Simulated assay, not measured.
Amino acid sequence: MTSTAVPEKARSPKQAAAAKRVDEPRRRRSWAPYALITGATLVLVLGMGYPVGWQIVTSFQKYGALQQLGGKAPDFVWFANYITIFQNAAFWEVTIRSVLFCLITASITVVIGVLLALLMTRIPAALRFILQIALLLAWAMPVIAAMTVWIWLFDRRRGVINYLIDLVPGVDIGDFNWIGSSPLLFFIVAGIIITWMSVPFVAFSAYAGLTQVSGEVLEAAQLDGAGAWARFQHIMYPVLKPVIAIVLLLNLIWDLRVFAQITLLQDAGPKATSYDLLGTYIYKTGVAGMDFGGGAAMSIVVLAITIALSWFYVRSLIKEESE
């Protein structure tokens, strides 16, 4: 038995009305995603729109101590603040250092996090539970408390690191200053701390992605002779690829604008510009130096760098959605 669709022109008024009633709920439901996203959009616009707008306006102004105290209205100097920071060699030195720092720490964080996620899929449930609790404690620890512990570990007089190294036969490290002896060691210590704080997020995200990989497919691949790397490359990685992309992007953004960890390390060591990243340098210029216009201009430059670093991911995401 076959049926043929009634052409739209040949429909009776009753058939047309029935078809319209069927289509109406479908059209009404199409507005649901827009209604659901409206609240989040308003929060973003109100919570971030004003601060960003204020920063953009202030970056074109001469805004110092007098303007902050209300003694004088800010004067528009337009691009003078940007010209000043672009001609500042110290700013570019800090910028290059910050970009390299965030690229290295974010990459190491993602690699260690994925390895821990793979480890959680292979160990027994009891050990996996202990590892997850340890990661949660590291992630949940407040920044101030965590930094207090880390500074104590690397303290040159009472630090555990120096004490353990001194236990090695033939090694006498003495009161070696890990934080203040050189900028390289300072940022190695800072990178270890920031990586330690960020790894749990990556590990849990990657582990959630690995739970979507079929165990039967992995077992079949192993029986066919595929090694561990081949199974990861051809079976696990395609599933983890979107997760790795988003956690890498988030860690790049977080590590580029890191502030509290560097500030607390500087409080325990040197405070020179060679030990600054963009967050601390902007704070010293804008707040401590009372040059809010220059600090706002630097903040807009950092925003532009953040957009540039994340553009590759955003472009690939748009391309995947269009396809």
Rank of each mutant, 00 (worst) to 15 (best):
T41A: 03
T41N: 01
L42H: 01
L42I: 01
L42F: 03
V43I: 12
V43H: 04
V43Y: 01
L44M: 06
L44Y: 02
L44F: 01
V45P: 03
V45C: 00
L46D: 04
L46H: 02
L46P: 00
G47C: 00
M48A: 03
Y50D: 02
Y50H: 01
Y50S: 00
Y50K: 02
V52A: 07
V52W: 05
W54C: 03
Q55C: 00
Q55E: 01
I56T: 09
I56M: 14
V57F: 09
V57E: 10
V57Q: 11
T58R: 08
T58K: 12
T58S: 13
Q61L: 07
Q61P: 06
K62E: 12
K62Q: 14
K62S: 14
Y63A: 00
Y63C: 07
G64W: 04
G64L: 06
G64C: 09
G64P: 08
A65E: 10
L66Q: 13
L66N: 12
L66G: 11
Q67I: 13
Q67K: 12
Q67E: 15
Q67R: 11
Q68Y: 13
Q68K: 12
L69T: 11
L69Q: 09
G70C: 00
K72V: 14
K72D: 12
A73I: 04
A73W: 07
A73G: 10
P74I: 02
P74T: 01
D75P: 03
F76H: 08
F76K: 10
V77R: 09
W78R: 09
W78H: 04
F79L: 15
F79G: 12
A80T: 14
A80D: 15
N81W: 08
N81R: 11
Y82E: 05
Y82N: 08
Y82K: 09
T84Q: 14
T84F: 08
I85L: 13
F86W: 10
Q87F: 06
Q87T: 14
Q87V: 06
Q87M: 10
N88H: 09
A89C: 02
A90D: 15
F91A: 01
F91Q: 01
W92Y: 01
E93G: 15
E93F: 04
E93M: 09
V94N: 03
V94E: 03
T95Y: 04
I96H: 04
I96V: 07
I96T: 06
I96D: 01
